[in-house]
């Protein structure tokens, strides 16, 4: 029985995401910067994983595999962060409450270890959802 924990998710910019984006959305820099989830070490402990382990993050709209890392900018326990990008957007609820603005910050996610599951590339993560052929 794998453990699961529920955290509050925010998706934000980071300078690495910015640099990665300008280096190219298909670049390794972009992949490294955005296919991660930042979690408080305590939450990792609760989940029973070491840092730099792949995890599956699921929200009300979908799920995605990313790598769990210790936060560069400190989070409180219970709060987690995926930098904005295609990985984060696989789980962001699109409903806008008539503002046009989806819920990019402050939605519940379930996290479970996914040590052996691969992380999709930036393009594949979108194509996969759209049902387009992946190389």
């Amino acid at each position: 029985m794998t453990k699961k924990i529920t955290l509050n998710m925010i998706t934000c910019r980071s300078i690495f995401q910015g640099v990665g984006m300008e280096a190219g959305k298909t670049s390794q820099k972009y992949f490294n910067a955005c296919s991660i989830i930042e979690m408080h070490p305590e939450d990792m402990k609760k989940l029973g994983i070491w840092k730099n382990t792949n995890v599956r993050v699921s929200s009300s709209v979908g799920s995605i595999v990313v790598k769990a890392v210790e936060p560069r900018e400190l989070l409180v326990p219970g709060l987690c962060h995926i930098p904005m990008g295609p990985w984060a957007n696989r789980i962001v609820p699109a409903y806008t409450f008539s503002t046009g603005e989806p819920c990019f910050k402050g939605f519940d996610v379930e996290i479970e270890p996914a040590i052996n599951e691969p992380i999709l590339s930036a393009i594949d993560v979108v194509k996969d959802a759209c049902g387009l052929p992946i190389k």
Partner: peptide, 14 residues
């Protein structure tokens, strides 16, 4: 494609 929630991206791809 990178910055919209996936449901809207899927809709666009169709």
């Amino acid at each position: 494609g990178a910055h919209f929630p996936i449901d809207s991206v899927v809709s666009m791809s169709k």
